[in-house]
Simulated scan of single mutants.
Amino acid sequence: MTRIIAGIAGGVPLAAVPGSATRPTTDRVKEALFSRLDALGMLSRARVLDLYAGSGALGVEAASRGASTVELVEADAKAAQVCERNARTVNEAVSRRAVTVRRSKVSVFLEKVPLGAHWDLVLMDPPYPLGEEQLADVLGAVAPRLAADALVVVERSTRSPEPAWPDGLAHYADRKYGETHLWFAEPTAPAGQGSAGMSEPAPSLET
């Protein structure tokens, strides 16, 4: 059974999407990811966007650990219903409506959001069959809607190439966990101002 790992709602069980329509992040990867985000100070009071949310496990974990708001974006009807259920569970645990669910295709959702600094952290766990060009288009739509010190995390198969980072986003670090590759990117600053996010890029590591 999937549970929230830590935070106010730590230990609370989560509903899973029935069947094999989604590919949930393993507990090992989730724990490593959120330990890193905690260490970077990316969660407290953050505005979080969870794209291709599946069950919403990543987004609600962020809410449990102190995120201010979390938006779960999921197009699949069954998965969106599970997102709703998990959002209600976590909102009750944190005693506020921290998590909302948007049933929509990711591209359509982003098109409707005006340009501006809407999110501090974006979590993306797209289905592995998603084409690299489609992924690049989504990243291109995300980039102009980020806070200056935001972070974007993309979860892919180790067999997938590095995402094509659009103008406005730069590779910051990456980590491998078994068959999972996590890519971290941050907004690029105007020339002469240096990085807008993390100060010293970390090298790629396989763990």
Rank of each mutant, 00 (worst) to 15 (best):
F34K: 01
L37G: 12
L37W: 08
D38A: 09
D38M: 00
A39M: 03
A39N: 09
A39K: 02
G41P: 07
G41M: 11
G41C: 09
G41I: 08
L43D: 03
R45W: 11
R45N: 10
A46V: 04
V48R: 05
V48M: 02
V48H: 03
D50V: 02
D50R: 00
L51Y: 05
Y52T: 04
Y52R: 06
A53W: 01
G54L: 06
G54Q: 02
S55N: 01
S55H: 07
S55D: 04
S55V: 05
G56I: 07
G56A: 07
A57N: 08
L58Q: 05
L58N: 06
G59A: 01
G59E: 01
V60G: 06
V60Q: 11
V60W: 12
A62Y: 01
A62R: 00
A62G: 01
A63C: 01
G66E: 12
S68G: 09
T69G: 00
T69Y: 08
V70G: 06
E71I: 07
V73W: 04
A75C: 06
A75I: 03
D76G: 07
D76F: 00
D76V: 03
D76I: 00
A77C: 00
A79Q: 12
A80W: 04
A80N: 03
A80L: 00
Q81M: 03
Q81C: 02
Q81V: 08
V82G: 03
C83M: 10
R85K: 14
R88G: 08
T89G: 08
T89D: 07
T89V: 15
V90N: 12
N91C: 01
N91T: 02
E92P: 00
A93F: 09
A93Q: 11
V94H: 14
S95A: 10
R96M: 02
R96F: 01
A98K: 08
T100P: 02
T100W: 07
T100A: 11
V101S: 04
R103E: 15
R103Q: 15
S104H: 11
S104D: 07
K105W: 08
S107F: 01
S107E: 14
V108M: 06
L110I: 10
L110G: 11
E111Q: 13
K112P: 00
K112F: 00
P114E: 12
P114G: 14
L115P: 08
A117M: 05
A117C: 08
H118R: 14
H118P: 00
W119H: 14
D120E: 14
V122L: 02
L123S: 15
L123N: 12
P126N: 12
P129S: 14
P129C: 13
P129R: 11
L130V: 15
L130H: 10
G131N: 14
G131H: 08
E133H: 13
E133N: 15
E133M: 12
L135D: 08
A136D: 02
A136L: 09
L139I: 13
G140K: 13
A141R: 15
V142Y: 02
V142S: 05
R145A: 04
L146S: 09
L146Y: 12
A150E: 10
A150N: 12
